[in-house]
């Protein structure tokens, strides 16, 4: 694959997907770096043919199961111990604008 061009708009889109507020004046900086890095690694698509299977797991293990037996849970106090905001034993989060799931 030819080395792709990365624009500041691309970075803005990716940053939104990744939920990182990159300031507008830094988008071009990241775009430049991303382009350089991608330029050096784009060659991966030229190496392996269709006959080469992809490896997702370094060891060829299968069927690692746990029995359906209760394990140790945390107490609500432990679960909430690191939370930035708590209300009635629940994690309090800012308002959700988007409706999903």
């Amino acid at each position: 694959m030819a080395s792709p061009e990365i624009t500041p708009d691309d970075v803005a889109h990716l940053a939104r997907l990744a939920r990182i507020d990159i300031p507008a004046d830094r988008l071009a900086y990241y775009a430049g770096q991303l382009e350089v890095i991608l330029g050096s690694i784009a060659k991966v698509s030229e190496v392996a043919g269709d006959d080469v299977p992809a490896t997702s797991h370094p060891q060829p293990l299968t069927n690692a199961f746990r029995e359906d037996e209760p394990g140790q849970s945390l107490t609500a106090e432990q679960a909430l111990s690191g939370a930035p905001s708590v209300e009635d034993s629940r994690f309090r989060v800012p308002r959700i604008l988007d409706e999903e799931a």
């Binding site: 690692a64 746990r66 037996e69 209760p70 394990g71 140790q72 849970s73 679960a79 009635d88 034993s89």
Partner: peptide, 30 residues
């Protein structure tokens, strides 16, 4: 291994795995 009872007190059937705590890993229920 957290229990699945309906209607339990909030955040009492949770552990590092299902809370997504850093470092926790899933283990699949047969």
């Amino acid at each position: 291994g957290c229990a699945t009872e309906f209607g339990a007190a909030p955040n009492t059937q949770v552990c590092p795995v299902c809370l997504g705590l850093p470092g926790a890993l899933p283990a699949l229920n047969r």
